[in-house]
């Protein structure tokens, strides 16, 4: 039997793992066992960059990569890191992220030239800030050492919000928070639970900033070598997975929210009001230009097209 390998960046039971497991189940079922899928969880085949590279050179067939990491292969994909870019309407995001011409069309050649095929994009949950003091407006972030993933765009974004961004590998985040070398970090709530960051924080803040998105890439030679039938099967599986993972992701994040409340009852939950969000969203607007300057290539087209796609979908579906 044929074996497809699927490597992701998270642990057992996290969003990417749920996606991969369901992918595996569907593929194995629909090929009548002709294909078996082997899943590699976080770190088993190296770090985030490694697994993308392994996909590009064909050692694994599928992998997850977050836009920050994938940015070193196809820089334009970092558009997904721009805060407040996506809609507040989940249905809009669902539609755009699984069909966007800006992402799947414009960038297809770029992906192809790196040996990759962009297979799917889905959100893993809303970004939540963990902080040690209440933050409601940009001024509150003054002097706050805010950990972000290593990406110039994210560093610029949190600088724009008013914080002091610190790029740190995640292995140092927990002790950094515990020992106060950093004051804040940002991640989806399920990951905050999973990595236990709630043990070393005081506030959880929902800023409406952005969904944390991940991409699934396939090896392009592998993809092109598949029979049309297999490709169609995978595209069917993909579209079924879209609904599946949105639902699972929301369940998981909701559960994490409850679990943290139970585990650490002292933590304050802060939801910014629409007005308060606006103050941050306004500052985020200048990031389009930073993204265009930083990334070059057809970044300008990508961000403009994506924004118009989101706008159009919002018009069709309503903003909320």
């Amino acid at each position: 039997a044929e074996e497809w390998k699927f490597a992701h960046e998270e642990s057992d039971g996290d969003v990417q793992d749920i996606y991969a497991e369901e992918f595996k189940r569907m593929v194995e079922e629909r090929t009548d066992g002709e294909v078996s899928v082997t899943i590699y969880t976080y770190g088993q085949l190296g770090n985030e960059n490694d697994i993308t590279e392994l996909t590009a050179n064909g050692a694994v067939q599928f992998s997850n990569a977050s836009p920050g990491h994938l940015g070193s292969f196809v820089p334009e994909i970092q558009v997904l890191l721009i805060p407040y870019l996506l809609s507040e309407n989940e249905e809009v995001n669902k539609k755009v992220l699984s069909n966007s011409e800006a992402l799947y069309g414009e960038l297809a050649d770029d992906f192809q030239s790196k040996g990759l095929k962009l297979f799917d994009i889905y959100p893993e949950g809303e970004m939540v800030w963990t902080t040690k003091k209440e933050v409601r407006e940009p001024e509150d972030l003054e002097g706050v050492k805010f950990r972000v993933m290593t990406s110039p765009l994210l560093v610029e974004a949190y600088d724009t919000f008013g914080a002091d961004p610190v790029a740190l590998p995640w292995g140092e985040v927990y002790s950094g928070l515990q020992l106060n070398t950093i004051d804040a970090q940002v991640n989806p709530i399920f990951f905050i639970e999973s990595a236990k960051f709630y043990e070393v924080t005081d506030y959880l803040i929902w800023t409406g900033e952005q969904e944390y998105t991940t991409t699934v890439v396939a090896n392009s030679d592998f993809w092109n070598g598949l029979s049309e039938e297999r490709q169609d099967m995978l595209m069917d599986i993909r579209s079924e997975l879209t609904d599946f993972i949105y639902e699972e992701q929301q369940k998981l994040n909701q559960a994490s929210r409850e679990n943290i409340k139970e585990e650490a009852p002292d933590i304050e939950y802060v939801e910014l009001t629409a007005e308060e969000r606006e103050a941050f969203a306004e500052r985020a607007e200048q990031l389009d230009q930073f993204y265009i300057d930083e990334v070059g290539g057809n970044a300008e087209e990508v961000v403009e097209k994506l924004r118009s796609e989101i706008e159009k979908a919002e018009e069709e579906m309503g903003e909320n």
Partner: peptide, 11 residues
């Protein structure tokens, strides 16, 4: 292979 794919460092 790195040259062909023109990978750039993030920062």
């Amino acid at each position: 292979s790195l040259y062909q794919s023109n990978r750039l460092t993030p920062s």
